[in-house]
Write a protein that binds this DNA or RNA. Structure first.
Lengths: 208, 208, 208, 208
DNA sequence: CATGAATGAGATTTCATTCAT
DNA sequence: AATGAATGAAATCTCATTCAT
């Protein structure tokens, strides 16, 4: 094999590292806009300001680039969330902080949803990994709160997926679909809902 | 122009209607397995047991077929849900029935998720339409319950998206990811969560 | 063979004759607009207000229809020209009458040029036949005039092609390219040119 | 967008220029033999000894290649003619030289007629351009001769198209239709005709 | 006589990947 | 380390023709 396989761990000069990162950054844009299949290496290299052939110096093929991009995004998101909840004491404060951090991340990486949704078709494993790692971390936190008696005794995994679903759909609706001014209110509403459920005694009080 | 564009409303003989439906059914399978881009007309027609050229007698192109498929699935899902909640009296009964009906639908149409997630890239409009129509119907139901004092006073749209998110992620986790025996318990848990929130007084009682 | 070959001489009912003629008329329009290859049987049958399959009741295939159309146009043109010059006594009167008749025919059958030019690619024989029959008739007339001492002694075929070329290009320029008001003057000019050549003594006189 | 559109002005390496020219040369052969529609990119690339995909590195599509080919042929023909008449002093010498040069060009580019006649269907603009530029140059020459009193006072455009028609039809008859031995005599005849018209006094004298 | 659904061969076009420079 | 011309497999789409009704 002439072109040796190029893993992310391969030793690179600093010029090489820069070129490689340009390709990953361009990929986030292009995959997000067009989707995996409709994205061409030609466009990615153009946006990265490198020649077409240069791509294959750093990645084995289009698939490998995509997989690495998804893994990277997942890692950054998990770090962001874990940083955000650190220091919060009550469960509700943690939820509020986590939701806010997620919405902020989704607002900055507006292609996150589109890339993750594509992932299912490109590489089942990286897509499962993305959600399972998020859910596992979430469930660990919930379990701890339950053990401290702060929460009812639920199955932490069920609640983790439920809360991830809430965040995902509110992010889709109020971050991506362009009405960010409603976002703050939605956060308040949903934290209230999380706290007390649909009957929300706190609110029922408002209307005697 | 020569082969006239063929909208779903075009008058067809019964033989024609049958052929057309074979194509739509095959499309649900193939799009679900491979995704829109990786699906070929050749494979769709093979699975539908018609010749390649026959496809273009009934659909203008792959895009038009996909759009119609998504619209059809959305319509069927909404009908299924509205039928399921009809007759239930309390909000919680409606939620439980709706969740169960959704999970059942997703179990039968195991490609639903994959198709809807692709929709975003194929046709923004049909994808928005799918979620907005679902959300609108859901919000209408919630609003009615609020007005009857059965629920706290939330923004119905926010809660509709939150509940859709819960259903979506639990369906992904417990219907698609192959552990259906856990599903019934997950439904119970989540209805409890919806009812009382994370603190779930009903359960806290259980453990003195 | 199930569909028996259908020559123009086949016995037809009057309804059949009408349908067949509708197809030929539609073909003149469609072949003229789009060219042979880009014309579809579907469009020809639509313009003829008959069903697609009906075409093959009257013609063996697209090629046969085109060949018959060219032959018919050539025949009509030759008849038109021979009628036009009949009764004229001098050669110049004949030329003038012939040119006018040709321009009139080209004005009525605005697709004549386009169809004949396509013919070369569709069927070499029918295209050669079209020009050779025209040239032969023209040459016969010129030869007779020469024998009566009305003309110089040229090779009649050379002059026939030269005069056909003049007619063809003036028709292209002044009939098809949309400036019909200049046509009458062009006819006068060219008859003068034909009569006396480029030095045109008649005109030289005008400017002493 | 991905494969950027490739205009003739794009900067190419010398290898690229060679490949591009091979394609144009092959196109002259194939379009001439089969006509535009019946010519396939596959055949053009085979005759040019390049791979199919290489075509799209240099031309946007078949249409663009054809248009460039016609424009190139027109340019070469006009240059050939203008060179041929340069240095001739009398109008008749110019005509004789021009006719001979045209016949020679048509003999060398035996596909010229077939390509130009197809042009009408492929791209109206390039076809009009071809004839109008030829006619304009011709008319300019005629006008100059008229102003020097060498010719009668005709409309130069009318006479230009008439003479082009003569050249075209004689070329068709005596260059393309395979009897080149008659060509020289035809040139003599037609120059005589151009000089004195159909009555041709010079010849009438010959036969008392 | 007339119909129109069905066919499948063949064309155009795209683009991931290779490799010589 | 970087380049970009060249490749060819694979996809979409068209349409002349057939045939059962």
């Amino acid at each position: 094999m002439n072109q040796p396989s190029t893993s992310p761990t391969k030793q690179l000069t600093s010029r090489g590292r820069r070129t490689r990162q340009q390709l990953l950054d361009a990929a986030e844009l292009v995959f997000g806009e067009k989707g995996f299949e409709a994205s061409s290496i030609a466009e990615i290299t153009q946006r990265a300001n490198v020649a077409l052939g240069t791509f294959y110096v750093y990645f084995e093929n289009k698939h490998a680039l995509f997989v690495e991009l998804v893994a990277q995004l997942g890692e950054r998101l998990r770090k962001t969330l874990s940083t955000a909840v650190k220091g919060k004491t009550t469960r509700l404060e943690k939820e509020r902080a986590g939701f806010r951090a997620f919405f902020e991340f989704a607002g900055k990486h507006r292609n996150l949803y589109r890339i993750v949704r594509q992932a299912e078709f490109v590489d089942e494993a990286v897509y499962l990994d993305y959600y399972r790692k998020l859910a596992a971390a979430y469930a660990r936190g919930l379990k701890a709160s339950m053990e401290q008696g702060e929460l009812g005794r639920f199955d932490p995994e069920v609640i983790a997926y439920a809360l991830m679903g809430i965040a995902d759909f509110l992010g889709m609706r109020f971050v991506l679909w362009n009405e960010p001014e409603q976002l703050e209110r939605a956060v308040d509403e949903v934290v209230e809902f999380i706290a007390h459920g649909l009957r929300s005694p706190a609110r029922l009080k408002e209307r005697p």
